[in-house]
Simulated assay, not measured.
Amino acid sequence: MSAPLTRIILCGKTAAIGRGVIAGLKPQVEVIRFVSSLNQANNEIPLILSGQYKNLPEVTKGEEILGTQNFNRIPDAVMLGGGYSKQDFEQIQKTCLDTPKAKAVPFFLADTTLPAPPLGPEYGKAMTNRAKDALEKWRLNLTGNTTGPIWY
């Protein structure tokens, strides 16, 4: 029997890296929505976590939306890439906590103190591997972290 599918919101700064990470996380992880800015994260993540996905902004012509857009249930976690700081995490988490009916889910935050290749394909691969490992440890209940970011 295969492991259950983990569903996440992925936050990154570029669609190019996002596409690579989304592809690399399959098939164990389904990225339901890719968010590419702090403003978008503060606006959309609380809506998704509270089941109000129908209130997500309309897609404008030429805008690329990444992720499955499968909102049939609340995602299991939110993963913030290396372009997001601990302060960004705190701001997004507070916005979510202040949103009525928003489900509390773990937030994963890239540890920018760990070595990583420069931005580009190798960076995406390295971050994908770190993300997969962190999600698997969390899924197996090995992280012990329930309130702050889970560093990966």
Rank of each mutant, 00 (worst) to 15 (best):
R130P: 00
I32F: 06
N42G: 13
K86I: 15
R19V: 12
G51P: 07
G83M: 02
L38V: 13
F71G: 06
T146G: 08
I92H: 04
L142T: 01
N72Y: 09
P118L: 00
K103G: 03
S50Q: 13
I74E: 01
F108Q: 10
L140D: 05
V59H: 14
G124K: 04
I92A: 02
Q69T: 11
K137C: 01
C96E: 09
N55E: 15
L114C: 08
P115S: 00
M1Y: 11
A134D: 02
N70V: 04
R130I: 02
K132Y: 02
T99Q: 13
L97P: 08
S85M: 02
V35M: 06
E90D: 13
R73N: 06
T128C: 04
N43H: 14
M79C: 15
A16Y: 10
T60Q: 15
E63A: 15
D111C: 03
I150H: 04
N141S: 07
R19I: 11
I9Q: 07
S2L: 11
K125A: 07
E136L: 07
K137W: 00
N42M: 15
T68K: 06
N39P: 08
N55A: 15
L80H: 02
D133L: 01
T14K: 09
P75F: 02
K13A: 10
L66T: 08
A23P: 09
N70Y: 02
P121Q: 13
G124A: 05
S50D: 07
N55L: 15
G67N: 01
S50G: 08
Q28S: 14
P46C: 05
K61R: 08
P27F: 12
F107N: 01
